[in-house]
Nucleic acid binder design. Structure first.
Lengths: 345, 345
DNA sequence: TTGAAAGCGCTAACAG
DNA sequence: CTGTTAGCGCTTTCAA
């Protein structure tokens, strides 16, 4: 039997139609469960599809209808918190026809613009943007072009939905826990913002606000002490060094994110100190690693999985009904007390 | 000035051509730097492109030429080792026109098939599969359809390139290090394989082989002791518990992957033991977390970043010249000695 | 209920 | 060097 020597060309709708003895229109209709197909036509078409191993070309479909593709932009593959969100998104999408495709935004507006444009160029049906750093105007522009849901931005846009953790409250939970243990000099490591819009929208800014507010509420306003660095391990390391060098160093550090807390622990080890013996440390996010016994980090669970499921649900709704009013969901965080916090010595 | 109330339709090549006063062919040629365009035509077209903010539709291009999209399948977003590979791939692609899109294969053949089909349906120009679990026949089928590079499978297919760490040698490095410290009862935690093909192709199987071989080479054949679990944190936890329960427990544990070693450390902490005081622990991969001072894990650096760069290079070559003979690259691992290994007590 | 035909945005022969 | 023309695989009016 002669074999073609080139890569087998893909089976197209034309071949399916020929084998089934019907028109391409008919095949298309059956595939999309469209109106106006007889049972026998359906079964003949389905048989031909199976026999030939036909799969529709998403790119050809894109020129007329949808691609059944949802794009997720995440800032960084390394931050394990985003994995929880992704799991949630994937779980919701698994029950649908949609395929998930991911890209990295790189925590940088230029790179984010490149990546979102790339997803739009590829005719994705909808986008989920996780913790984007682009300006609200730019996000609005994206949302005008394609159905969009934003995670981790407290904005009030009418064009896209948002899903957030209540960061302000979450920060308060940490302060309450530490104050309850008897700490007074509770310091915070934040990722600094200067831009007015970002001060209002970014989770890190709201956590810092929540920290300040809660400190005052507990009568600890005079002990407010913030080290401004970044939400990275290095940022935590630097922040801890700054705080430890104070004339009167804190007895507890609330890091704005778990990765930051890891950097803090690193700096403590380096300085010959340990948590909670010498100093208490708390994070935010409850990444999987926080539960790791060797670390056992006290933190705040913002239910990444649930955030992902919610965002995926909103996106599919929005794809179906692009003009519908924007939903802005805020989820309640819960404190997770583990081994890195204890009473001050 | 009246504003359209619906979402602005995308600018197409036709409009660019009209504004520039040339044919669509001309625009297409200029955009692709194709042969046969005069300087003035080029500048007029470019001006129109900029003015109108035109971006080519990747999906429309897909029907004729390439999509300038490379798909990467990774088994799992959580394993931080894959992030190193991704960085390498992204770095290499950043200098090109290609856009990277990722999917999760889920460490499961059925799910991998779904995901690879999805990428093929979307006309991706090439695929990089990281540590796939599908059968060689299935991988061959994929590679017949689209240019493919496989990372983390020691296969010898003529259809796709592979990039691997020399796992056999790497395992030997760990045994040599531990034996050099004076350990004799060195145990190993592996991810078990029974299938003949997988025994020959999977990195975990080669690491176990390398362990056995090195133990014998060091005259420690009688102390070979393997706990068969999985390459996960839980697998490490379970493996350590099994090994600690032996009548004569090991003085050193070589975990087949860093995530496994984290599970081992977890089990040690639980049992009131520590590394390297009570027992030495080594991993494999050198994930970023291994350098974290609180952990300071001895491991093997398999240069994930370099693997990624190499794979991306091979893929672009293969896209250009699909028929070229397959390259099978094996990179040399280097030992990274940190704080979790020391002399036996 | 069914199918012919037009066209989505782009590229590639082929003429001029 | 430039433009006309014919599709790529699919969906969608619109007649039959």
């Amino acid at each position: 039997m002669p074999q073609p020597r080139t890569a087998a060309r893909r089976v197209t709708i034309v071949e399916v139609a020929r084998h089934a003895g019907v028109s391409t229109t008919a095949v298309s209709k059956v595939l999309r469960n469209a109106y106006g197909t007889s049972p026998q036509m359906r079964s003949r078409v389905r048989a031909a599809v199976d026999r030939l191993g036909y799969r529709p070309s998403a790119t050809a479909r894109a020129l007329r209808g949808r691609t059944w593709t949802v794009g997720v932009m995440l800032p960084d593959v390394r931050n394990p918190f985003f994995a929880d969100i992704l799991d949630g998104v994937a779980e919701h999408l698994d029950d649908t026809e949609y395929q998930l495709l991911m890209t990295c935004g790189g925590n940088d507006a230029t790179s984010e613009a490149r990546v979102t444009e790339a997803m739009i160029d590829r005719s994705m049906d909808g986008l989920i943007l996780i913790a984007p750093v682009s300006s609200p105007a730019h996000l609005d522009g994206i949302a005008r072009t394609v159905p969009t849901v934003v995670i981790g931005r407290h904005s009030h846009s009418a064009r896209y939905d948002t899903v957030n953790d209540d960061d302000f409250t979450g920060a308060g939970l940490v302060v309450a826990h530490l104050a309850g243990l008897g700490h007074r000099r509770i310091a915070h490591i934040e990722q600094h913002e200067t831009d007015r819009v970002r001060l209002a929208e970014m989770p890190n800014a709201l956590r810092a606000d929540g920290y300040r507010h809660a400190m005052r509420a507990h009568g600890l306003g005079e002990h407010i002490d913030i080290a401004s660095t970044t939400y990275t391990r290095d940022g935590g390391h630097l922040g801890a060094r700054l705080l430890l060098a104070r004339p009167d160093p804190p007895t507890a550090i609330f890091a704005g994110a778990d990765v930051v807390a890891l950097g803090v622990l690193d700096a403590l080890t380096e300085a010959g100190l340990s948590a909670p013996g010498d100093i208490s440390v708390a994070g935010y996010d409850d990444i999987t690693l926080a539960a790791f016994r060797t670390i056992s980090l006290t933190t705040v669970d913002q239910a990444g999985h649930h955030i992902g499921v919610t965002a995926a649900g909103l996106l599919l709704d929005r794809i179906t009904e692009p003009g519908r009013p924007a939903a802005h969901v805020k989820l309640t965080p819960t404190p997770v007390v583990r081994g890195t916090t204890g009473p001050p010595r």
